[in-house]
Design a protein around this nucleic acid. Structure first.
Length: 273
DNA sequence: ACTAGCCCCTGGGAGC
DNA sequence: TGCTCCCAGGGGCTAG
């Protein structure tokens, strides 16, 4: 499931391949993929637009196009982007953007949870799924003060709070489990009740884990590949996610899988207090 | 204003 | 081996 490091990996690989290219046409076998505008308008508006640059915000991938248009993509569970001249073997492509160099920029998504929006640049600030997003965890806007302030807003477990994109943008189930393991905090703890020292450990773990995951091109658990078809390597560094029954690498306790906030949650009951 | 829970999807693992 | 059942999960939406 693509979280911040995976989207960042896709962005970096993709920008080398498509920046400067012109989109000649758009075809889809699943027009619902484009949430806004309706697909006919999308086709008309994207035609002959040049891809000027790529960006990322939380788990959103952003293509800045000529004519002040912006294509926003959220990969949700199984979405990814591919570039190639022959993608016929790919079974789950739902959008083909033909480029002027005869290559195709394609969006593939097994579970079809992902969505795409095409908006005007000046609509970006009001773009709903995005306007409420919390700070970028690796930016200087994500300060200790901001983090503490946001953690105090709701009565919720720390797991829920870190999954909430309004608290901090880009964390998903895998990295929240890894962050809480690194910080030594039990996912059931109420965020408001954590000590200053504990919050600080979490704050630091968010930055360290995400930076390390980006360095390793993200995590390939299910269905994540880079646009070149490569895999991430961070799964080799996962300590608790998907490790139910394994020994804890820190204290040799047994890793448990429970459900918190409706999500599979992996932790070590012995050393995560 | 808040939260809990449903819904979208489909491959693949579990169970028989 | 082959079938059926049901889980995984981000985030929008609805009902309470």
């Amino acid at each position: 499931m693509p979280e911040l490091p995976e989207v960042e990996t896709i962005k970096r690989a993709l920008e080398k391949q498509v920046v400067g290219k012109i989109i000649k046409s758009a075809e889809s076998n699943f027009p619902k993929l484009v949430a806004q505008p309706d697909f006919r308008k999308f086709q008309a508006r994207i035609k002959n637009k040049k891809i000027e640059s790529l960006s990322r915000r939380g788990k959103f991938l952003i293509f800045y196009l000529s004519g002040s248009k912006v294509l926003i993509s959220h990969l949700r569970m199984t979405g990814h982007w591919l570039v190639g001249s022959d993608l016929k073997k790919e079974k789950f492509i739902h959008l083909n953007l033909k480029l002027n160099d005869s290559k195709i920029l394609a969006y593939s998504d097994i579970r079809k949870f992902g969505r795409i929006w095409l908006v005007d640049k000046n609509e970006l600030a009001d773009f709903i799924p995005w306007s409420k997003l919390g700070p970028e965890p690796l930016s200087k806007e994500f300060t200790w003060k901001v983090f503490v302030d946001r953690l105090g807003r709701h009565k919720a477990t720390i797991k829920q709070m870190l999954l909430n994109q309004e608290v901090v943008a880009g964390l998903g189930n895998i990295y929240v489990d890894e962050v809480l393991f690194k910080a030594g905090i039990n996912p059931h703890r109420f965020a408001k009740r954590l000590t200053v020292g504990e919050k600080l450990k979490i704050f630091r773990a968010i930055k360290t884990i995400l930076a390390l995951a980006i360095k390793h091109s993200g995590t390939t658990v299910v269905n994540f590949t880079t646009p070149e078809g490569g895999s991430g390597h961070f799964q080799k560094h996962l300590k608790v996610y998907g490790k139910k029954g394994n020994r804890c690498p820190r204290c040799k306790g047994k890793i448990k899988r429970i459900v918190v906030a409706g999500r599979g949650t992996h932790y070590c009951p012995k050393c995560q207090k």
